[in-house]
Every structure is written in structure tokens, then in C-alpha cells.
């Protein structure tokens, strides 16, 4: 397993991690700036941080409450 991971150039892994971090950070920023969310805030924090890719996306689609 370790060898296989080492066969991937580090340049290929970095963007993957960076993009995931960007998604998480943007989702968290929006979560803290919005006054209301659909569902409790702490639940969204857990979902965003622990579910890779799916968490931030589902927050943006379901959790954001459109300001009228």
C-alpha cells in the first residue's frame, strides 16, 4: 500500500487535498456567516468536516437558507 502511494507524484496528491480543504473552509465560512440554517448548526459542522466532498456539497444544496 505504501509503495503504491509513493508511486503517485506528490504534485498529484496536493491539489486533491487543497481542493477538499477549500470546499470545507468555504462551507464553514458560509455556515458561520449565515444567520439561519436548515437544521442545527453543530450538525452541519460535523457533516461538512467529516464527510469528504459529500458534506460541503450537501450543505450548499440543502443547508443554506436563501435570504429573501
Amino acid at each position: 500500500m505504501k509503495e503504491a502511494l509513493e508511486s503517485i507524484p506528490i504534485g498529484a496528491i496536493v491539489p486533491f487535498i487543497v481542493l477538499n480543504v477549500i470546499l470545507i473552509v468555504v462551507a464553514l465560512i458560509d455556515l458561520f456567516r449565515s444567520e439561519q440554517t436548515r437544521g442545527p448548526r453543530w450538525m452541519w459542522i460535523l457533516i461538512i468536516v467529516f464527510l469528504q466532498l459529500v458534506g460541503p456539497v450537501s450543505y450548499f444544496i440543502v443547508g443554506r437558507r436563501r435570504e429573501a
Partner: peptide, 24 residues
């Protein structure tokens, strides 16, 4: 709405995922 950040991110991650899993 941050759509300009998160939707391209999702597509790029989807694009990266398949070659990575095939490789591994």
C-alpha cells in the same frame, strides 16, 4: 452564493478521482 467556488471544485475533484482510483 459561492457557486463559482464549490461547483468547479466538485467537478475537478470528480475528474481527479477516477484516474486516482484506477491507478490504485
Amino acid at each position: 452564493n459561492y457557486k463559482w467556488i464549490w461547483i468547479p471544485c466538485v467537478f475537478v475533484l470528480l475528474g481527479v478521482m477516477q484516474p486516482l482510483t484506477s491507478h490504485l
